[in-house]
Design a protein around this nucleic acid. Structure first.
Length: 109
DNA sequence: ATGCTGACAGGAG
DNA sequence: ACTCCTGCCAGCA
């Protein structure tokens, strides 16, 4: 299906982008948490959908799954690239290859 | 309006 | 640890 690209950010998508852009370097948020922040609990899937339409410049690599791992169809450069970006920002990775959500998960909801 | 899809989350087996 | 199923919500044909 067509990617949403010629559409301006609005409503749900705009909220998602706003929240994601608010994530400070060295911290990450899960899809479900973002959905909760914007007032749409359970809309984690839609958050991911919004991310697929994320405009350039949005730190979508700071958005991870509840396991602190990378999502399936990451289109921004692959899990390796994501890990490199996050580690460069100070995100702590565990030996199992996942992010230490206990330390890096943003909580200023 | 209806149905399908999707970068998820949780629970069950 | 694994897979499978269900629920959730927004956008598009």
């Amino acid at each position: 299906m067509n990617r949403i690209e010629s559409k301006p950010p609005k409503g749900f998508f705009g909220d998602v982008y706003s929240v994601v852009s608010r994530i400070r370097p060295g911290e990450v948020m899960t899809y479900g948490q973002i959905a909760l922040v914007i007032g749409r609990p359970g809309a984690a899937r839609t958050v991911g959908y919004a991310m697929s339409a994320a405009p350039p410049g949005l730190p979508c690599h700071r958005v991870v799954t509840r396991f602190g791992d990378m999502a399936r169809g990451n289109i921004f450069g692959g899990a390796e690239n994501q890990r490199r970006l996050l580690e460069a920002e100070g995100v702590f990775f565990l030996p199992n290859g996942r992010i230490d959500l206990k330390k890096c998960l943003k909580r200023d909801i």
